[in-house]
Amino acid sequence: MSLGFHIKLQILWAIFDVQKIYYPLLAAVCVPVNVVTIAILSRGKCGLSKCVTHYLVAMAAADLLVVIIDLILRQVPIVYRDQFFFLLHVKMCNIHAILLYAATDCSVWFTVTFTFDRFVAICCQKLKLKYCTEQTATVVLGTVTVLSCLRNIFWYFLYTSEYWLSNSPWFCRVKIGVSRSLVWTIVELMHYILTPFIPFILILLFNALMVRQILVSNRARSRLRGRSSGESPSDPEMENRRKSMIVLFVISGNFILLWVVFMVCSVLRRLDYLGYSVSPPTFLSEISFMLQLLSCCTNTFIYAVTQKKFREDLMNVVTCPFTMMLKLIR
């Protein structure tokens, strides 16, 4: 046994030990965090438009589903497989896979549609009035949800109904002869291209175009205000635009950073299974799962840091039980 292999094995076992604490703790945080986020945003008192609120609520709801279906019903049983060994006798893994991948697709593509909505609002002023509406947001989110469900039905036929209880992209047992077939290879590569490779490209493209447009608009606006006033006073419009863009860029950057390791590891594993010696270390794959699932609860903290009204509502929700207890005591 080489020294490098021994080190990798030690790192892997250390990560397994961390996961036994990390996954239950993450679930305990993510579920209430997303529920509270949905409740606060649904009230519509955060100073956001109804259109933006629809997207943010949908993103939080999709993240909540991923936490339940992936983190609680998949990752936790895998790291505690000795206690959940009975799942090997539960015959519904292929259905579980459809729900998991559909929820994940929704979580990813809701972020893309939100980014595109903001792109239209900033860069396409003529289209803005027609597209950036509550009705359009509802139609777009509904369409993404339906397409995500339909796109993942094929997993029912590629997987068996038996759980594998292995922490890999294929957490169900695969039908004999399918995993090395050309059809499986095409389907799986397309799966990772559609989620999350294409979303990465689209989000980066839309953000780059928005930055360009904002810089041009801000320079023109600053020149006009400077000529009219003779000085450079604060501009509320530019300040609001700056705050909105900070939220969008942080959400987009957070998504890309936490998903990129998972995407690279998944593609390399598929290529290795086809005979190319490019398999990533197993411990890196484990880290990729941990980072991907972390993305399901980070948006709430982003809102809390960047949105004053959201932060105030969040504080009210957190302090409400203590306030009620004090009133009862008095």
Rank of each mutant, 00 (worst) to 15 (best):
Q75E: 05
L258M: 14
G142C: 01
I201V: 11
F249A: 12
M263F: 02
L9E: 13
N254H: 13
M325H: 10
M1R: 09
T113Q: 08
P77E: 01
A58G: 00
Q75K: 05
T113V: 14
V79L: 06
I11Q: 04
D63G: 12
N167T: 11
A61M: 11
Y55N: 00
N167I: 14
R270M: 04
S288H: 09
Q125S: 10
P321E: 15
Y273N: 09
T53L: 03
L204G: 01
E239A: 14
M92Q: 11
T298R: 03
L65F: 08
N152T: 02
L194F: 12
T37M: 03
S2N: 08
D82L: 05
V146T: 15
C149E: 04
F301H: 04
V187I: 13
V36C: 12
V317E: 15
V36G: 07
I193S: 06
C51H: 04
T138S: 10
I214D: 05
L202I: 05
L64S: 01
Y131C: 14
G177E: 02
P24I: 01
Y22S: 03
L224E: 08
N207M: 14
V52W: 01
F283Q: 00
F310C: 01
L87K: 04
A103P: 13
A60I: 05
V250N: 03
M290G: 02
P281F: 02
W184C: 03
L202Y: 10
S244C: 11
I186G: 08
G44M: 07
R227C: 05
L129S: 13
V174W: 00
N167W: 03
G47R: 14
T143R: 14
L284H: 08
L194Q: 08
Y159K: 10
F283E: 00
G226H: 13
L71E: 05
L3M: 10
L147I: 10
Q75M: 09
R270G: 01
Y55A: 00
P169M: 07
L271R: 10
P281C: 01
I302D: 00
P233R: 09
Y156L: 12
T282Y: 03
I95M: 09
G44V: 13
Y276E: 07
E237C: 12
L129E: 15
S279I: 07
M324L: 15
P196N: 07
E162M: 06
Y163T: 00
V183A: 05
V187Y: 12
Q125P: 01
L9A: 12
V90N: 05
P24Q: 00
F119M: 02
K91F: 09
L209R: 10
T300R: 01
R241K: 11
V57I: 12
L293P: 00
S266H: 05
Y276W: 12
N207C: 14
P32Y: 06
C46I: 11
L73H: 07
N94P: 08
A27V: 08
K175Y: 02
S42V: 01
V261M: 08
F85R: 09
R173E: 11
L257H: 08
Y55D: 03
A61R: 10
N254S: 11
L71I: 05
H191A: 06
M238P: 12
Y23P: 06
L87C: 04
V305L: 13
S166I: 15
R241H: 03
A58D: 08
H96C: 07
V260Q: 08
L314I: 03
S244G: 15
I214G: 04
L215N: 14
A103D: 01
E286A: 06
G4I: 07
C93F: 00
Q135N: 15
K91E: 10
S42F: 06
L48R: 13
